[in-house]
Nucleic acid binder design. Sequence first.
DNA 1: CCAAGTAGCTTGCAAAATGCAAGTGAAAAT
DNA 2: ATTTTCACTTGCATTTTGCAAGCTACTTGG
Lengths: 149, 149
Amino acid sequence: MAKKRLPKRRSACPLNASVEMLGDRWSLLIIRDMMLLGSRTFKEFLGSYEGIATNILADRLRKLKVYGIIRTEQDPFDGRKLIYQLTPKGIDLAPVLTEMVLWAGRHEKTENRPLIRLMQEDKQKFLEQIRQRWAQPNPTMESKRTTTI
Amino acid sequence: MAKKRLPKRRSACPLNASVEMLGDRWSLLIIRDMMLLGSRTFKEFLGSYEGIATNILADRLRKLKVYGIIRTEQDPFDGRKLIYQLTPKGIDLAPVLTEMVLWAGRHEKTENRPLIRLMQEDKQKFLEQIRQRWAQPNPTMESKRTTTI
DNA sequence: CCAAGTAGCTTGCAAAATGCAAGTGAAAAT
DNA sequence: ATTTTCACTTGCATTTTGCAAGCTACTTGG
C-alpha cells in the first residue's frame, strides 16, 4: 500500500491548514474519543455513539497518521491489535476541542454538562490533566471517567 | 423556498454539535473572513483566496443563518446587496478560531506569522478587539488590517 | 429612460466523498 | 481444529462538492 501523499493546500492561511486536516464530520470526534475516553483501538472507535462506518474510520485514521496527529504501534500481547495514540501534535489539539465544547455548551442544547462545567471552571487545570495523562508513552486511562462524553 | 429544517443530531455531545455545524471545509473560513477581514457581502466572500464556488457559498451562508451564527439585512444604499453579519453566537466563535490558528501555527508551515504572533502574545487582547469591533450593530472595519490573513 | 453592468443567487451535470453491507486474512480463543 | 475476534477492504448506492452557465432584480452611465 502506497503511503498517502499530502495534497497541496488551497492556501497558506493557518486556519485553512487546520480546516483541511480537521474539517470534516469525524476527525475531531476520533480525537475526542482518544483524549477523553482513552479509546485506542479500531474497535473502540467503532463503539462510539455517533456510529462511524468502518471504511470511513480506516480512512480518517490513515489521514490523521499522515498528518502526524496520531501514531500506531502493535499491541505486544495481541498480534491482531493496533494501538492508536496521540502524538504531541495531537495532544496539542486539546485547547481546540475545549473551545468547541465550550462554544456548543454556551449556545446549544447539549448533554454532558459535567464536562462543560469542568472545562469552564478551570480550563487550565483541565488541559493540564489531558497533557499529564498523555505524557507517558502508554497513557493509562484509569482515572479517565471523571466525566463521560 | 421552504425554510431549511435542522436535521436531527447524531448525538447530544457538545463537540458533536460543533462538528455538525462547523465541520466542513468552508464554514470556518467564511467566519474567518467576517471576523478578520470584515467581509460582509456574497461577493467579498467569493473573493477570498481559497476560491469557494457560488453554490457552496450560498448553501453555507444559508446553513450558518439557520444555526444562528450569522444574520442578514438589506443594504440601505443598494437594493441588490445583502449584508451578512455575525450574531453574538458567531462572534463567540473567536476563541475556537484562535486556537485553531495557534495550533496550525505551532505545527504546520503556514504564512501570516504576524496574526499568529498577535494571538500568541496576547490572546485576551486579541479576543477583546474582535468583540469590540463587532459590538456595534454595523461593525466598522477601518482598523481591520492590523494584520492580513 | 434605456442599455449595460453588477449582486446574489440557482441549475445542470460530472466527479468525489460518504454510508452501508458484506467480505477477507491473520491471530487468538475455545 | 473450529470458531471468534480484530482490523480492515471491496462493491455499490446515495449524497456532497465543484465547475460552468444561466437568471432575476437592481443600479449605473450615457
